[in-house]
C-alpha cells in the first residue's frame, strides 16, 4: 500500500484522470465563466476569469419568457414520449417474453429491424403524411413520432430483461391467482426497475436533445423545443457571446441538475441496460 512505486504509478493514473476530467469539463467552465463577463471584457479577455463578474446576462435570459416556454415544451414532449413508449413497450415485451402466440417472433424481428431506421429517413414520408392529416406543429403528433422511434429499442431491451426473470416467480404468482396484468405490474416491472431506469434515461435524453424532428415537425413558434430554441437564440445573439453562453448555461441546467441529484441512478441505470 505504501510501496513508493505504487505511489508514483497511482500519481500518474490520477494525473491522467485529472487531465481527462479537465478536457471533459472545459467547455462547461468556459460557458459559465464567459456568461459572467461583460460583453466588453470578453472582447479583450476570452480565456481568463472575469475581473468583475456580472449577472446581467443570466438575468436577461431568465427574464425572457421564451426559455421557460421552450423548456416546458421539451419537458412535455419528454414526459409524453417516455410514458407512452414505456407503457407500450412493457405490454408488448411482456407478451413477447411470456406468452405464446402466432407472429411473436416476427413481431420481435420487425421491432429489431426498425431499430435500424435512422430518424432522418422517416422525415420525408412523415412530413407528407402529417401535412395531409394536419398533425404538423402538434404536440401529440410529435410525441407519436418520438415514441415510435424509441419504442423498438425499448421492446428489445425489456424483452431481453423479462426473459431473465426466473420462471418460478411466475408460477408462484399464478398459483396465488394473479392475472397477467397483475403479474406485469406487481412483479415484473418492479424487478425490471434497473432496465426501466435505463430506458427512461436514454429515451428522455434522446428526446430532450433532438433537433431534427423538432425543427421539422414543430414549426409553430409557440411549440418550439429547447434545442430548436437555443439554435435560434444563438443565431439571434451570435455577436453577444457572453449572452449566448448564459443562454446555453441556462438551457443545460435542468439536465445537469438532474444528473447531479441522480448521478448514481443515472450511471447505474445506463450500466444495467448496456451490459445486461
Amino acid at each position: 500500500m505504501t510501496n513508493p512505486r505504487t505511489l508514483v504509478a497511482d500519481g500518474f493514473k490520477q494525473a491522467a484522470l485529472g487531465a481527462a476530467a479537465l478536457v471533459a469539463l472545459a467547455p462547461t467552465v468556459f460557458m459559465i465563466v464567459t456568461a459572467l463577463k461583460p460583453q466588453s471584457e470578453y472582447m479583450v479577455n476570452k480565456v481568463g476569469l472575469p475581473r468583475e463578474p456580472v449577472l446581467e446576462h443570466f438575468r436577461a435570459v431568465l427574464g425572457s419568457p421564451e426559455f421557460f416556454r421552450w423548456m416546458g415544451n421539451s419537458a412535455l414532449l419528454v414526459t409524453g414520449t417516455v410514458l407512452l413508449s414505456t407503457a407500450v413497450a412493457a405490454l408488448a415485451a411482456y407478451a413477447i417474453a411470456r406468452m405464446e402466440f402466432r407472429g411473436r417472433l416476427t413481431l420481435l424481428a420487425l421491432c429489431t429491424a426498425l431499430m435500424a431506421v435512422p430518424p432522418v429517413v422517416m422525415v420525408v414520408p412523415l412530413f407528407v403524411l402529417y401535412t395531409q392529416i394536419g398533425l404538423i406543429s402538434s404536440y401529440h403528433g410529435a410525441i407519436l413520432i418520438y415514441a415510435a422511434l424509441v419504442t423498438p429499442f425499448s421492446v428489445y431491451l425489456l424483452t431481453t430483461f423479462f426473459r431473465t426473470i426466473p420462471a418460478e416467480m411466475f408460477e408462484a404468482a399464478v398459483l396465488d391467482g394473479a392475472g397477467d396484468f397483475q403479474i406485469l405490474t406487481r412483479i415484473v416491472l418492479p424487478l425490471a426497475l434497473p432496465a426501466l431506469l435505463t430506458l427512461v434515461i436514454v429515451n428522455a435524453l434522446w428526446v430532450w436533445n433532438d433537433l431534427l424532428i423538432a425543427v421539422i415537425f414543430l414549426q409553430d413558434d409557440a411549440k418550439r423545443t429547447l434545442m430548436a430554441g437555443i439554435a435560434v437564440f444563438q443565431g439571434r445573439y451570435n455577436n453577444q457571446i457572453p449572452l449566448t453562453m448564459a443562454g446555453m448555461a441556462v438551457a443545460s441546467a435542468p439536465m445537469i441538475i438532474l444528473y447531479i441529484i441522480f448521478q448514481r441512478q443515472f450511471v447505474r441505470g445506463l450500466m444495467a441496460g448496456a451490459v445486461k
Binding site: 471533459a24 436533445n209 437555443i230 439554435a231 443545460s252 439536465m255
Partner: peptide, 11 residues
C-alpha cells in the same frame, strides 16, 4: 467524465 454525455449536442 460522464458529464459530456449529459450535455445536449446542440448546446
Amino acid at each position: 467524465l460522464f458529464l459530456p454525455y449529459v450535455l445536449a449536442i446542440p448546446i
